[in-house]
Simulated assay, not measured.
Amino acid sequence: MRKKELRLVITFHTTAEAIAMETVCRKEDIPGRLIPVPRQISAGCGLSWSMPPSWRENMMGIMGRQGLGYQTMGEYLI
């Protein structure tokens, strides 16, 4: 079993928003990946973006510039 670690998890209203996030992050070489929404969160389309918590401020700026929408953003042990 994988050891749980603190991750920044971003949830989305729609699958299209989740895919747009993945596209931007791959293009910009931003660490992270799409994952199913963790059990402790019940939100959105079922997909979320997981990344290191240290990227929170950078992501807020990037998402604003790129016009990326999201539902929730928080740090969770996953």
Rank of each mutant, 00 (worst) to 15 (best):
L6R: 12
L68S: 02
G64D: 15
I78E: 11
C45L: 00
G44C: 00
G67E: 08
E28P: 11
T72A: 02
R7E: 15
V37C: 05
P31G: 00
D29Q: 13
G74A: 00
T11M: 11
V37L: 05
G69C: 10
S42N: 14
E5G: 15
G64P: 07
M51P: 08
A20N: 13
M51E: 13
T72R: 13
T11G: 11
N58F: 09
K4V: 12
I62L: 14
Q66L: 06
R56S: 09
V24T: 10
R7C: 04
T14C: 07
L68A: 00
R7P: 03
L68R: 03
R26L: 08
G61P: 06
M63E: 04
Q40R: 12
T72V: 00
E75M: 01
N58L: 12
M59N: 10
W49P: 01
E17M: 10
D29F: 10
R65S: 15
I35Q: 04
L34D: 03
I10E: 05
G44P: 02
P52S: 02
S50T: 03
E5I: 15
T11D: 12
L47D: 09
G44T: 01
P52C: 00
M21Q: 06
I41H: 06
M21I: 07
E28V: 10
R7V: 01
Q40C: 14
T23C: 04
G69W: 15
K4T: 10
V24K: 06
M73H: 11
K27F: 12
L77P: 04
S48K: 06
Y76E: 05
S42A: 11
S48E: 04
V9K: 00
Q66H: 11
P52R: 01
P38E: 12
S50F: 03
G69T: 09
A43Q: 14
M21D: 05
M1N: 13
E22T: 04
M1T: 14
P38W: 10
E5D: 10
